[in-house]
Design a protein around this nucleic acid. Structure first.
Lengths: 261, 261
DNA sequence: CAGTGGTCTAGACCACACT
DNA sequence: GTGTGGTCTAGACCACTGC
């Protein structure tokens, strides 16, 4: 029923008072970590309903309020989604609302209704030994294999984004250009269902560049068109690097939108 | 003692049960709004210590836990800062830690220690009638006055950022190039102490451009150097627009860093 | 030491969704 | 109606700060 070991901080008293372990951490943090481990282990998959707060409280032998605080934080980090009256679900990139959380390029004129899905064209998908910079980014050895995917995204027929995507070979075994082309879902949704990988967090570094010859061809622009270069590192649970992506955006009629809070 | 009117949701029962007002909102949201109003009214100024949770609970006639939830959210939005053992303070742009919350341009090589403060050079500061695009951005009339500030930021002697800043004339009355030049604090810190305006939130739109002739001069670059254009709208309490800023960044040795959560 | 925020509990009731 | 998450309370104790 309850295979989980007793929590470090629980000393048997009402408010978990008394002597605490040397490296103290609040109970709700420990609960959070346990839930995270269940997510990572695939006990609950993207889209799944997880146990109710009371069930989790019983399983972990803490009060419902403590579970609540742990789940609250995981929900704020977009790992879980709460739905009043229904329950708490594992968040997924398949949902419409979360679709554009990682794509920050927006049309200058939203009325143009061009927020619709982009047309996608896979240029190629190869398996090769990791170049040194790729290995470094993905925490791999240069002897390890990686997949390299290149693609172009177009909006209303205008080629707008060129992407060069690097993925760990071991995790994405069996990835092909054909599979990528045929799947109509967002790429990250396919990663979830086909490879059990959920991208949780990312970091982007932006700069302005002039295009290489390749990019000129792919985006149909001249060599003196300034472009936005977006280097993205994506992480799965526990901050494991899982994707390195170099994007080049044409920003003639679009812009990268960022909220500072 | 307590000049605040009774809260809408309080029906006198234990858990504020019973009939609630038509447009229901949780108690902690109402508390949050009341605190926000005190901040906006200047009752507590940036850097000030605000009343303790128990005092606020007494003032608003709710439990400490409800105040706690309200303050928690305001702290997450960076309007307040909690310090265990000391109290809760109104957040300010003067603090070192929050200094770079709005400047996302980081050195490519952090070891270069070039994270230090930028050298600032004010080009000019004028008062004029708002051009139509500025008026629109700041929710003003074209008959209203605005200040326009232009400046260059340099890192290690290299001119890197050119900024064109527009501010509402009524609020920033008395702003001069001299005052801007002499003040060594961050610009937003001066806005707090001298004009009672605290920037709370901002929105940035990025694109790649080639520089105008002006910018070529200011940044000492050629006309074919791609630059990052950063258009920022800044807001004070209650989402009032307070600043419109066009920045142009040289990204040869630096990049715009963004976290996606 | 007293005062502050931080954690945890237990129990009540409300709002929402499904059956 | 039952079960879920969402709000609110009251009270306990811990951790940190400064007198």
């Amino acid at each position: 029923m309850s295979p989980t070991p007793p929590l470090e901080n629980a000393a048997g008293q009402t408010a978990h008072a008394g002597l605490v372990s040397p490296s103290f951490s609040p109970l709700y943090q420990q609960i959070k970590e346990l839930v995270l481990q269940s997510l990572q282990a695939g006990e609950w998959k993207p889209g799944d309903l997880i146990p109710s707060e009371f069930e989790l409280a019983a399983r972990f032998k803490v009060s419902q309020g403590t579970v609540r605080k742990a789940v609250d934080e995981l929900a704020k980090e977009h790992l879980l989604v709460r739905r009043q009256g229904k329950g708490t679900f594992v968040s997924t990139h398949s949902e419409q609302q979360v679709q554009f959380r990682f794509l920050k390029l927006k049309p200058d004129n939203p009325a143009a209704a061009s927020q619709g899905p982009a047309q996608r064209h896979i240029i190629d998908c190869h398996r090769l030994r990791a170049p040194s910079d790729v290995a470094r980014a993905l925490s791999l050895r240069t002897s390890d294999m990686v997949y390299r995917v290149r693609r172009v995204l177009s909006f209303e027929g205008v080629p707008t984004i060129f992407e060069d995507i690097w993925l760990p070979g071991a995790t994405f075994k069996g990835l092909t250009a054909e599979r990528l082309s045929k799947d109509t879902r967002p790429m990250y949704a396919m990663f979830e269902s086909d490879f059990g990988i959920r991208m949780v967090r990312a970091q982007e570094r932006l700069r302005a560049i002039l295009p290489s010859e390749d990019v000129c061809d792919f985006l149909k622009v001249s060599t003196n068109t300034p472009l936005l270069r977006v280097e993205r590192m994506s992480f799965t649970y526990h901050d494991s690097p899982m994707e390195w992506r170099i994007g080049v955006y044409l920003t003639e009629n679009r812009h990268y939108l960022n909220e500072l809070n």
